[in-house]
Amino acid sequence: MINIKNVTKSYAKGSVKAVDDISLEVKNGEIFGFIGPNGAGKTTTIKMITGILKPDTGSITIGGKDIQTDSVEAKRQIGFVPDSHELYDRLTGMEYIKFISDVYGVPEAQRKANTEKYLAMFGLEDSSEELIKTYSHGMKQKITLISALVHEPPLWILDEPMTGLDPKASFALKEEMRSHCDRGNTVFFSTHVLEVAERICDRIGIIDDGKLIAVGTIEELRKGEKGTTLENIFFKLTEAAEGGEK
């Protein structure tokens, strides 16, 4: 579903490599967890996958469509939830969902059904007619989630989606992620909550200092060390990467 080939992104005229020559393939039907320390390059990678940033080198395809050269078709396959919740404050929640439905060309029957379903799932039925600027952080997160799901994209890209969600909404999201993949779709998400990643991800990629230091199933990452948690694996790998640099 996602194919990242030799992608690099630098800032400050190349002196800071936010993402350093990473290659990654995310298959159809899997929940892929993307984890790493703060400043590792997770959000930069996600922004390149979604077309917000342009890589310096390499290519990224979504369902076979290049995000740079065939951007409209590539983006049509994505439902994206960023880590920040900067939305159109002057629209109501419902108007924002309608706007997204219009630009994704969602048929009326589908948008009605999905809007009602997800507003109920995330408990926003009573607030959907309020202006977004009156929403709490968590409510903005929910509206962003709903707008990413309403058009039923084959690929969900979620950047720290659990942040700000109440436990009920968090549980509902995890269930929905699983159900989405069971239907043959794909979820790519980044998180700092390693227990969640360990529990629900089919495969995990660990990025540190712009480099992809490990990719695989939780078993593959354990490398035979039974009972080791993802947290331990994470610390071991990131500290090893740090030590290697020193």
Partner: peptide, 20 residues
Amino acid sequence: KRSAKESKGQNSPVMAIFFR
């Protein structure tokens, strides 16, 4: 207690941006 209004009508992307 209000339920969400029906999202009536489908706008083209150009008009969606215009109205936004």
